[in-house]
Design a protein around this nucleic acid. Structure first.
Lengths: 215, 215, 215, 215
DNA sequence: TATGAATGAGGGTTCATTCAT
DNA sequence: TATGAATGAACCCTCATTCAT
């Protein structure tokens, strides 16, 4: 494995290097596509635009991705996976941090991811719809997932006697709505709000927990 | 109105009749387009589909509408106008009904309109994005308008000492989010929720006013 | 129905004229395609070539034909239909002309049709193969048909005691082979042989009936 | 040949071994191509298919063959050469076997070769047309050659007073036609007829010599 | 006004061939 | 010699819009 491995190791080395190069190229194309999609939206982005942005030839694109749809789906999957990772189930064990803190953490992580992936989120929020059954299904699955997380948290809270006895289905939709709206805002605003994700996360949670009314 | 109306003086009558006919046809095309767009979405609706549904010739379509984009925009405008009408500024005069009741009314009217225009709203919510700057602008204007209404209501409430001293910008976004989310739900669900708009309207308002926490 | 029919008849007249015009255009495109296919073969003929030869726009082509494959198939069908018409079952009734004469007639008609449709036959003979299952099936059906005709004639002849007791399957293949070969020759030769179809028809029949040997 | 062969003098050995290796690989590719072309036809066979079947890299293919066309042509040439070898001029010397027997032998050899090279012959017969001037020319040359052989045999027969005074041009076309047709049949039939080449060869000759008529 | 035939600018994708390693 | 990533010219087809009748 050392630098002395000249003969049999060379093949591996070459393969590995090639594979790494391939992976890099793939990532570069993905990156170019991300920028292009973000700028022009799905329908106004043509394969020509992507390959131009990536500085590759037409055929090269199809060496790495099956179709325009496919690369778009991959970008979407990537983002949704990252967002999913932001969501951590609430830990109600004794030693765990306060629930409120945990929730703030999750919201903050989600919004943070959104801000970090502004361009792509813009598409997720605004264009990834009506593009075909596969994309639609993927999207629905993602939001359903988020919704389930919220509902479970709500039911937990009710069981613990902290939350009101609201209809959890409607309530979780409301919560999801607030989060989506702020995701959109964070992403459309040319980043004005993006500067203080923390404040926004706290505000969302505060709103959801206590509502508008003075008590 | 009889067959005697053939002299120059009848011109008005003829013009009027023609104009009425024109208006009727225009409406018929709009209606056909509404159905078609609703069924297939913007991108999968072709001018061919619209003219077939309307029973007119290709060229005729362009006598009434400038483009596919234009007719779509008009349908959107129509819906947005109707939605706007649902929004009535809160009346804080002495004799006026309780604020809470007025707000419930507005939310109920919005959601009612949404349910009545299910097909089109589905598009408004899910496809009317990335279709061109004009559509985008119109959409933004509509939502901004809704947002302004909400913010004003919030500021009013704060001034009246009813509402908490929240950041009204963020709070109104949250409120908007809950409404949009329920609009979407009402419209995507195959109408399951659509049956009791009243309950939903109350729930949204309750959520927004009082939040999730027990007090 | 007379020339006095000015008002209601006008519509018909217009429709009819339009329909005739359409038919003409269709035929013109077919003709252009025929020339182009004949000159360059199927694979080297591009839709671009056809529309250029026809002097029409790209889209116009697809107004009249579903695809490049479809127009090709139509040309082939046309030719095969014409060839089929050349084939008339042998009439063995008393008053009928001599069998030999009838056979010469059929061969002559076939070869005549071939010569008249030189360009297209060249394709039928040399290129209409491996172009897809539909074309292949059509072609096979045609030749099978021809083969059946020949075999029946042979069996008839055997029953009548005129023909030898050959294996009719192999024999009819041989006969088909001679005809196909001469079709090809008539069509590839730049028409040298095409001048006297009669002589060729007689020769083929003579060959098939009497063979090479002196008796 | 041992490990001692490292001095300049060994160059020949190395060259030879390399050359043998090269030749082997070449043949392997040809074989793979033969299978692939036979299975899918010329147009539906892609260079990718060939290299996959041969287990070589894309570029390697072009080290051994100039193009897809070229390798196809080579396969065709190979087959045509083999077919040509089946054709032996009729020996009219005193001690030679009977002419009839010699002819049967030639037909049998041709059809035998055809059956042995079924896959490729199928292409020769059905697809090797319209693939470019080079292929066309080669094909024409081959058939012309066959035709010449037949015509010469015919003229010989006439000179010897055995055959009728037919137009040898047309007659030899007829003979060629019967042979080609049976080649095609032998090759398309999924080999049903292929089982008794002998019977077919005899039948063809019988047909050509004696025709259909009773005498 | 109404018609519908005609237009043609792209759109995504394929695949034989080249070339740097 | 061997590799396989990269190339890019073509190709077929779609569909919003125009225009002669």
């Amino acid at each position: 494995m050392g630098s002395a491995a000249m003969s049999p190791g060379a093949a591996d080395g070459r393969t590995e290097r090639a594979s790494r190069k391939r992976e890099n190229r793939r990532r570069a194309i993905l990156q170019a596509a991300r920028r292009t999609f973000a700028q022009s939206g799905f329908h106004r982005t043509h394969v020509s635009d992507i390959i131009e942005a990536a500085g590759i030839a037409r055929g090269t694109f199809y060496l790495y991705f099956e179709s325009k749809n496919a690369i778009f789906l991959e970008l979407l999957d990537e983002l949704m996976a990252e967002l999913k990772q932001s969501i951590v189930g609430v830990d109600t064990d004794e030693g765990a941090p306060p629930v409120h803190e945990q929730l703030v953490g999750t919201v903050r992580r989600i919004l943070g991811t959104v801000v970090e992936n502004q361009a792509l989120t813009r598409i997720l929020v605004r264009e990834a719809v009506g593009l075909g059954e596969d994309v639609d299904a993927r999207l629905k699955a993602f939001y359903d997932n988020l919704l389930d997380y919220i509902r479970e948290a709500l039911e937990n809270g009710q069981r613990m006697g902290i939350l009101r006895a609201l209809d959890t289905e409607l309530a979780s939709l409301c919560v999801l709505g607030t989060i989506k709206q702020l995701m959109e805002q964070l992403v459309m605003d040319d980043g004005e709000l993006g500067r203080d994700v923390d404040r926004v996360a706290l505000a969302v949670l505060d709103f959801n927990l206590f509502g508008l009314m003075k008590r």
